[in-house]
């Protein structure tokens, strides 16, 4: 094929000169990302990242587990989310219009919360990720593994911010 057509010749289409014509328009941010700290150590990580930038659709919480109750969708516990300003939010409500939920843990303290959040996300088709901070991560990873489609082990201080930025959260 000779000459330029809209369909042919990748050598021309993929050149730097032609890439200047890639359309430029505001990209839609992520539909919604929820970041949940599963323990007090994780809450420090989450608070720091929450304050580090002006996020579009990311919301940040710490999880409180209420035992001996019937949680949603048959999960063994109920989880209440606390916004970083202290406001109490329902997990059901906070998972509306959400693409991804990122659980942050520094210990296996939050394994029951992870199970409940993971189950709630699963029935809603919400992707789940787990960031495991700390050095001795084996138990924490085991606790999160069944409920996180992506695990980062061990996560460092910059990982949560990098993931949220990459996702346009």
């Amino acid at each position: 094929m000779s000459g330029w057509t809209a369909q042919g010749n990748t050598a021309q289409a993929a050149s730097a000169a032609e890439l200047r014509y890639r359309m430029s328009y505001p990209l839609v941010p992520s539909r919604g990302v929820r970041v949940v700290a599963l323990d007090s150590g994780a809450e420090m990580v989450v608070r720091k990242v929450a304050a580090s930038s002006t996020w579009n659709m990311a919301r940040f919480y710490s999880a409180e587990t209420i035992l001996n109750s019937h949680g949603i969708h048959g999960a063994p516990v109920e989880v209440v989310l606390h916004g970083l300003d202290g406001a109490v939010e329902s997990l059901n409500d906070e998972l509306v219009d959400v693409d991804s939920t990122i659980m942050v843990a520094t210990s296996d303290f939050g394994s029951e919360a992870a199970a409940t959040i993971g189950a709630a996300c699963s029935v809603r088709g919400i992707m789940t990720a787990g960031l495991v901070h700390g050095e001795d991560t084996e138990h924490t990873v085991s606790a999160l593994r069944p409920y996180a489609q992506v695990l980062l082990v061990p996560a460092d201080d910059g990982d949560l911010e990098a993931i949220l930025t990459a996702m346009r959260a």
Partner: peptide, 26 residues
Amino acid sequence: ESMGPIVDRTKERLATTDAGIIKARA
């Protein structure tokens, strides 16, 4: 190569499953 000589990563939107790429860049 179709991305261009240097892909403009300001226009990309990664997903949680791209965590390996995100971590490697970091």
